[in-house]
Design a binder for these strands. Structure first.
Length: 276
DNA sequence: CCCGGAACCTGAAGGC
DNA sequence: TGCCTTCAGGTTCCGG
């Protein structure tokens, strides 16, 4: 599942390969990947220069001239590869560039998208702050969490509160901060928000250093796996021992999403019955 | 505005 | 062995 660290890893891998070139072709082997606007809108990107490759949340952005951009979202099973994958792969689109580089958009489940933005601003503005942006602060996080009574786990997945956190890193950050996933977002103490803020940065930064987590279908553009999952404390570790206290990792459902946590390091609120 | 749920998609896994 | 159901989760859309 590509989240912020995985998309950032992809960004760093492809930027040096295509910056300064022009797009020569966007072949949509599966037209539905173009989203509701359809394949036609992407044709205006042909011939445009690639000024930079950016990441915003989980969106990968090929920045063209005048704030135009081709925006890729990998959703659940998408991957960007620099070499043509094996025949049994599920290539949905191929982007070609003037220097001969080709990007293969592989996506088993066809949930990923490629869309043309004639102006990137609406996309950039509607997402919440970047967790690793120096301007992002614990106070900002506290401010937005105070407006929500939803479980903190659900709040971390809300891309308006912070952009780029997905299921795996939300679980890891909550464990590191010692917060139960069902605790209402607006009931976190100032200290808890402070710990959570730092934990989010810690787990994301470390995962980027590990070039992402390959729990399932994530590959780097060079075809290699990431290693961040090797040090996961709770994510996808049901029944395994918590690295802090040895307690068996639990899994509950929070808003229809699996939530892994340590019942000892992340106790439920006083007065509530521990959920499973 | 806030919140919860359905829908999208396909391969893996589990039940019988 | 094989059919069937359920599950996985990021995002958007819709209804209360």
């Amino acid at each position: 599942m590509p989240e912020l660290p995985e998309v950032e890893t992809i960004r760093r891998a492809i930027e040096p390969a295509i910056v300064g070139t022009c797009i020569t072709g966007i072949a949509l082997l599966d037209p539905s990947i173009a989203g509701p606007e359809g394949p036609a809108s992407l044709q205006s990107a042909i011939g445009s220069p690639v000024r930079a490759v950016l990441r915003r949340g989980k969106h990968l952005i090929l920045l063209l001239e005048r704030n135009r951009g081709v925006v890729l979202h990998l959703r659940m099973t998408g991957a960007i590869l620099l070499a043509e994958p094996a025949a049994q792969a599920r290539v949905r689109a191929i982007l070609s560039f003037t220097n001969g580089v080709r990007l293969f958009f592989n996506d088993m489940r066809r949930l990923g998208t490629i869309r043309m933005y004639e102006d990137l601003k609406p996309l950039l503005v509607r997402l919440g702050p970047e967790p690793l942006d120096p301007d992002f602060s614990a106070d900002m996080l506290a401010q937005s969490l105070s407006r929500h009574s939803i479980p903190i786990k659900a709040a971390l997945l809300d891309q308006h509160i912070a952009a780029g956190i997905g299921n795996m890193y939300a679980d890891e950050a909550l464990h590191r901060a010692g917060i139960h996933p069902l605790k209402p977002a607006n009931e976190l103490s100032k200290e808890e928000v402070s710990r959570l803020f730092q934990s989010i940065r810690d787990v994301l930064t470390h995962a980027i250093e590990c070039q992402g987590a390959s729990v399932d279908t994530y590959w780097q553009p060079n075809g290699e796996r990431g290693t961040a999952h090797d040090v996961f404390a709770v994510a996808h570790r049901r029944g395994a021992a918590c690295p802090i206290c040895g307690t068996s990792i639990n899994r509950i459902m929070v808003r229809k999403r699996g939530a892994y946590f340590c019942p000892r390091c992340q106790p439920a609120r006083q007065g509530t019955v521990a959920t499973n």
